[in-house]
Design a protein around this nucleic acid. Structure first.
Lengths: 342, 342
DNA sequence: TATATTAGCGCAATCGATTGCATTTGCTGG
DNA sequence: CCAGCAAATGCAATCGATTGCGCTAATATA
């Protein structure tokens, strides 16, 4: 049980009777090293339990094999699943992942970018915070030529690779589904209009109404923080203004639960009197009474796509490569809260 | 918009007219460097936008300023909050955090330990996976003298620092609360008996019964995977065996939701006919109908404590320091599902 | 047989920051 | 005025792996 005598390639070199250069090349399967030597080196390495020092290697060729991820909060099934997708892809290629949370705080997001740059990550994947309306902190990433990929919460103000779902289409389908179920006065819960996903979901909602000959009533669109309490308040706003809605399509699952609670409190029957559809397929949407219809965003797919984009950037000639916007299709999950036919 | 001409301390040295040694010392606020020189160096560093290369520094003094965290899954409010607590403490001390998920897979846990060791982290914090009953993979961590802290899902088979909540007491209080509310035939949902937290929660449950003169009936203790479906199945087992229970204390929030659903399906009134208490205070416990009583584990506190323990280890003389077991108190949150008095 | 190749490996510099030891400069006291 | 000491800085090695270039010996070609 002796201490930690660091084992380096020099120890292997001594053991085998060659130099460290040869050991290094052997370990990296360099073509100019004979098979015999390679085997000896590999055997010796195993024998003395050699572990490469990634830090030294990183210093030498400037690659840390680290990918930084920034999400608003990992405490969402959606985001943690994306991370899982990224991890799967990255680990398979011997990259490690560093996860950071911005907590939707602009300053923290800026600081986190700095921190990742300090840590010399080889690439950064970001889902923007809600309060990020300025993108200067990404300029330095771009200028350094570090691969940058945005996912889900992205912006068009920056020319970067991104992976998103078809928010427009998903919202369209969700709204359309409500219309098919006979609802006609459909409200929409949304958030900051500066954020792309909310813009798109609103657009899909409007178009579905239009295509079905239903008048768009701006008073039925309510903006909130998209949390539980936001959903409650938005519901009250609708009720207080006596707008006579018979359904809600919410851009967030949390907000739709708030609505569900408030409506049940005043004995509104779901889905008979009011239909509900959320967004994100958070696990709890399957736990409520009634269960909630929602949109599944294929988070793991999104993570894998984002990682794939990153590795394309790593391997490709960065220079004049045009940026890609990968759009994934989401899945409308129909549960009890919006099914009143049959 | 030119490329990335790496800026090093040598550039500063050139600018200021000293050597790199002096620059390094100035940046690190070494006492042997004059205030004048320090100021010049700092100014020059800012002027040419110098960013220290942590990798080079890491190579030199063998510290990466990285902490590795392993949790079964980040996709639990409890774990992500712990991570948040660790992050807060660590970032304040200029340490970065690497999060990895074991997905309760023993092999993945072993591989992750290897990966973190490869990445030369300065310390590792772990919450064990459900299927980890062998701890050899931690021996190498210990032998290398790398600080190791366990939290929540720990084991006593390893002599390491740990942070846990008082599972025994929390379970005792939860059970006692149910008894106070007049329930007498209290079932308990649990999981693998090899896991400390479940042992302790069972123990607390038993003791509360004992102290209140209620007979312990082993048939009322049901083991499952502690997921939603596990809770459903466990409930059915109780019902099918006609055991006449009037309350359930579950060691998991997911399982108690499963019970809630199944009981509501057959029109059992909660809390009038059956009282329910879960464990973990997952967000959705506030969303169900009725809302669920549960135990809040003060996850952020736990994370901060774990980080604090880590930094103690970093600063202290590791050698003969006895290992610490920090026990935090949890909070019973009483909601509608267990409140039938008044 | 003499020269041209090529395979196989070693030498030494390098990545950027750190640090023990040496050196220079400046000041104090005798 | 000079030894003596402290303050401030420089020199050069070091952390471990990588890699361009060069060297040697063996094989191939003429």
């Amino acid at each position: 049980m002796r201490k930690k005598e660091k084992i380096t390639i020099h120890d292997i070199a001594l053991e085998v009777g060659v130099t460290a250069s040869t050991v290094s090349r052997a370990l990296n399967n360099h073509p100019r090293i004979s098979a015999t030597t390679k085997k000896m080196v590999l055997d010796a390495a195993k024998a003395i339990n050699y572990k490469p020092n990634r830090i030294a290697a990183a210093l030498r060729h400037g690659k840390s094999k680290l990918i930084g991820i920034i999400v608003p909060t990992i405490n969402r099934n959606f985001f943690s699943s994306i991370v899982r997708g990224i991890e799967e892809h990255a680990n398979a290629l011997d990259y490690k992942v560093m996860i950071s949370q911005s907590y939707d705080d602009y300053k923290k997001e800026v600081a986190t970018i700095e921190a990742l740059l300090d840590a010399r990550v080889d690439g950064i994947m970001v889902s923007l915070g809600k309060n990020t309306h300025n993108f200067n902190h990404f300029e330095s990433v771009l200028q350094k030529g570090i691969p940058l990929v945005f996912f889900d919460r992205t912006t068009d103000k920056l020319n970067v690779n991104q992976v998103i779902i078809n928010d427009y289409l998903s919202a369209y389908q969700a709204t359309n589904h409500l219309i098919e179920q006979g609802y006609r006065h459909i409200a929409h819960f949304t958030s900051h209009m500066k954020i792309r996903i909310y813009q798109e979901r609103l657009r899909g909602y409007e178009q579905a109404l239009l295509d079905n000959g239903i008048n768009f009533d701006p008073r039925l669109v309510v903006e909130s923080n998209m949390q539980l309490d936001g959903g409650q308040k938005s519901t009250h706003r609708l009720l207080d203004n006596n707008l006579g809605f018979d359904a809600i399509f919410s851009a967030s699952d949390y907000a739709i639960v708030g609505a569900l609670q408030e409506l049940k409190r005043i004995n509104v029957k779901i889905p008979q009197e009011v239909g509900l559809v959320g967004f994100s397929n958070e696990p709890f949407t399957a736990f409520t009474e009634p269960t909630l219809s929602t949109v599944d965003q294929k988070a793991i797919d999104m993570g894998q796509s984002a990682a794939a984009l990153f590795f394309e950037m790593v391997n490709a000639d960065q220079r004049n490569k045009p940026k890609v916007k990968k759009v994934l299709d989401a899945n409308l999950i129909i549960r009890a809260s919006s099914k009143r036919l049959q």
